[in-house]
């Protein structure tokens, strides 16, 4: 079990046939520039890197992301994002390139219309765009946006967590006890397993509300999206979209379910959960331990009380801290 979670077991990122430039180093280099370019926002002062700060493991330390407005969700970290089959806490984007168009256009985030985005790229990135995608002038704005998204995705595919103390196997007594709980009585490894400590799936852990239904809405949006795998913007000649083909639409378990985040660097990436409601790991562990009764209107929680005592919770927390620097 210990070995299966080691970072050395992380394979190369899965291929993304829908993105022709996914593994193109020129696209990745341009994507890196776009990621930090504050001109890509309605007020000219915000970029992807504002909420996904490289120095903070690509999150921002805030409960909810702040762009032009305040988002209803916490900015997820991006290390290992290439391995995520669905993007956003509710999985409403089925590719990394489609995800990028969300924040670029959202009124609370970067707030650019497609036309504005095309103008800015034409003004400041004409040559780089042309080298990858041809002359921008005659291209429809939506096509330009998709190409921007694909370049940002190429850059993000290279984001990988660094080895942690856990991977070196250097755990002390308390941390080892915490690890035993993690894979045993605390049941964490059910969802948090593998080198990235996530099963990339969606589970209801009793945190939904009227304001946010999670996966049930996210799946509906993914299937209806104009930039999903089935759209004309996918570069895949086989047009294979098994994720959408086998999507379990309308399943009760998606109501109030959110994506299992990676636990890499969890000690350094507070606040926690989809809305950043918990400032400390102790609060998160308390939630899982007590499994408070959740409002059944927002789905059925998979949690049940674990009955761990203070000392055990402390050991668990010590273990979680070994997953970062």
């Amino acid at each position: 079990m210990l070995a299966s979670m080691s970072l050395s077991r992380l394979p190369a990122p899965p291929a993304d046939p829908s993105n022709a430039v996914a593994d193109d180093p020129r696209a990745a280099a341009w994507g890196a520039k776009l990621f930090g370019d504050v001109r890509l926002s309605r007020n000219g002062k915000l970029s992807c890197a504002g909420c996904h700060q490289p120095g903070k493991f690509f999150t921002d330390g805030l409960p909810r992301a702040k762009g032009l407005g305040v988002s209803k969700r916490h900015a997820p970290g991006l290390l290992g994002v290439a391995y995520s089959p669905w993007l956003f806490w509710d999985g409403r984007a089925d590719s990394l390139w489609a995800q990028a168009l969300g924040p670029l256009g959202h009124a609370d985030e970067l707030g650019l219309s497609r036309a504005q985005l095309k103008r800015i790229i034409g003004e400041h990135h004409r040559a780089e765009y042309a080298a990858l995608f041809g002359a921008i002038a005659a291209q429809p704005a939506e096509r330009v946006a998709v190409n921007v998204g694909k370049s940002l995705a190429a850059f993000q595919r290279g984001l990988r967590p660094a080895p942690a103390r856990f991977d070196a196997g250097a755990l002390d007594e308390r941390e080892r006890r915490g690890f035993s709980l993690f894979i045993g009585a605390a049941q964490c490894s059910r969802c948090h397993f593998g080198p990235l400590l996530t099963n990339h799936s969606f589970h209801n852990t009793g945190t939904a509300s009227a304001a946010d239904h999670g996966r049930s809405e996210g799946l509906r949006l993914a299937l209806a999206s104009g930039v999903n795998c089935r759209s004309a913007y996918s570069d895949d000649p086989k047009r294979a979209c098994p994720k959408l083909e086998f999507a379990r639409v309308g399943a009760a378990q998606w109501l109030g379910a959110f994506k299992t985040p990676s636990l890499r660097n969890v000690g350094a990436t507070a606040p926690y959960l989809h809305d950043g409601r918990f400032n400390t790991l102790a609060q998160v562990l308390d939630h899982y331990n007590r499994a408070p009764a959740a409002d059944l209107r927002w789905g059925h929680s998979e949690l049940f009380p674990l009955g761990l005592d203070k000392s055990q919770l402390g050991d668990l927390e010590r273990f979680l801290l070994t997953l970062g620097p």
């Binding site: 379990r248 639409v249 399943a251 378990q253």
Partner: peptide, 8 residues
């Protein structure tokens, strides 16, 4: 775990 299939 009490959850169903992730795919259809």
């Amino acid at each position: 775990h009490g959850h169903g299939l992730p795919t259809q």
